[in-house]
Amino acid sequence: MKFAKIVAIEYELPSHSLSNEDLARQFPEWDVAKIFGKTGINDRRIVAENECASDLGLRACEKIFDSGVIERSDVDCLILCTQSPDYVLPATACILQHRLGLPTQCAAFDYNQGCSGYIYGLGMAKGLIETGQVKNVLLVTAETYSKYINEGDKSVRTLFGDAAAATLIQAADETVALDRFRYGTDGSGAQNLIVPVGGSRFPAAQNLDLESRKDESGNIRTDADLYMNGPAILEFSLTRVPELFESLFDENFTTEMVDHFVFHQANKFMLDTLKRRLKLPEEKFVREFEHCGNTVSSTIPIALKESMEKGKLKEGDMVACVGFGVGLSWAACTVRF
């Protein structure tokens, strides 16, 4: 039997940066130190007006091919996680398959999952490979949340950045490298992180005269913009994530056997609180979002790649990955590198 194994990870950030200094000039009540103290973020990367998820995903995938680890002709499955597709239809994965020059025998599909999406993608890749359906999966996560964010809404503008990551997962003869997948969903919280207008329920074409509103905290948005109920998302995370995390472990697999803990890189306050609640050692707790912000489905692969480049993540290391957020959804797994 073949087992699914992560072989390579690359990521791509847009060239334009939105710094804390930029935000402080627009929101004088939030100085640079306050923004960083709350978020742990210095810079967020923002796509150009004509730049989309497939553009970022394309450049991340090209880095995989440039490394020489695989030929385009050998990719037989492209999975794309995005909540900001190029079009309502067709699937952005189909567009990306053509732009990358992948074989027409390659499967390609989108899925819309968000902050837990990377782990869902790893789970699908594992299933496809270990049932013998495919051999080489390109898992792409790509988001341009900035297109959904009102410039007057500091509650989300201080957090989110645009990015894409590409992960090559291959069939290998080695023992299990992707394991202990756990999933969860609570759609009753869907309204707490949402773009209300733009889908079939409330089509954008029927809501062109969208009124800007200011909330009690001074944030400005329309119904076509991203809305986040911060307190509700925090409560969800601090309730569900510890339960999810603890479900990874048993008498045969303990936290002491893990070399690195990579959580969805939401923000400093969220990660600090979870680390403290779960009693995790700081030296094993990965933080890699200061330079790019919360990049949604790409936070975990970016953190993994940064850890590899810095020499922290080495061959043979055991990693526990935990994703959580929009949906509401959550997922976790272990990765042996």
Rank of each mutant, 00 (worst) to 15 (best):
C61P: 06
P231L: 07
L138R: 14
D76H: 08
V134A: 02
A232W: 00
D215A: 10
S54M: 01
S146I: 02
Q26W: 06
A163K: 09
D153T: 07
N207Y: 07
R72I: 12
N20H: 07
I302D: 11
R157Q: 12
L226H: 03
L168P: 14
I41L: 11
I41C: 03
F253P: 00
T254G: 02
D223M: 15
E282D: 15
G199K: 13
E290Y: 01
A91T: 15
A24P: 11
S188G: 11
N150Q: 04
Q26K: 07
G199E: 10
H16I: 11
C106R: 03
G189W: 04
V322D: 00
K34I: 05
A266P: 06
V197S: 08
N229E: 09
F263E: 00
L271N: 05
L238M: 14
S297W: 13
R45W: 10
N192K: 11
K310L: 10
A53Y: 00
Q26F: 07
R213S: 02
H16M: 13
I9C: 01
T295P: 01
A320P: 00
I233W: 01
L13Y: 07
T222D: 02
G311A: 09
E62V: 00
L80R: 04
M270I: 15
V134P: 02
V241Q: 02
L78G: 02
A166E: 04
A125Y: 09
A125T: 12
E21Y: 08
Y148H: 14
Q26S: 08
G327P: 03
Q97P: 08
K279M: 08
F3R: 15
L248H: 10
I35W: 02
V134R: 10
Y87D: 15
Q170R: 14
F253Q: 01
T167G: 08
P203L: 09
K126G: 08
V32F: 06
D31K: 00
C292R: 09
E49F: 14
I6T: 05
F109D: 06
K275F: 04
F269M: 13
I46A: 07
Y120H: 07
I70K: 00
N267P: 07
A163F: 03
L274D: 03
E288F: 05
I129F: 02
Y111I: 11
R45S: 08
K135W: 13
D173K: 14
D153S: 01
Y148N: 13
F249M: 00
D76K: 05
E243V: 15
T144H: 04
G117A: 02
F324I: 01
S17E: 14
E51M: 10
A125S: 15
D223L: 15
K214Y: 06
I302K: 14
G189T: 08
Q105C: 03
D162R: 03
E21Q: 09
G325K: 00
S84A: 13
D225G: 05
C81P: 09
G40M: 08
L313W: 14
C61Y: 06
F289C: 04
P242T: 13
I149Y: 06
F261S: 04
N192H: 15
L328T: 09
P196Y: 09
G132N: 03
G316C: 05
D225I: 06
A332S: 14
P242K: 03
Y111A: 02
L58P: 12
A53M: 05
I169A: 05
E216F: 07
L58D: 04
N219Q: 08
T104D: 12
M270F: 02
S116D: 03
L18H: 01
G293M: 04
V197R: 12
Y145A: 10
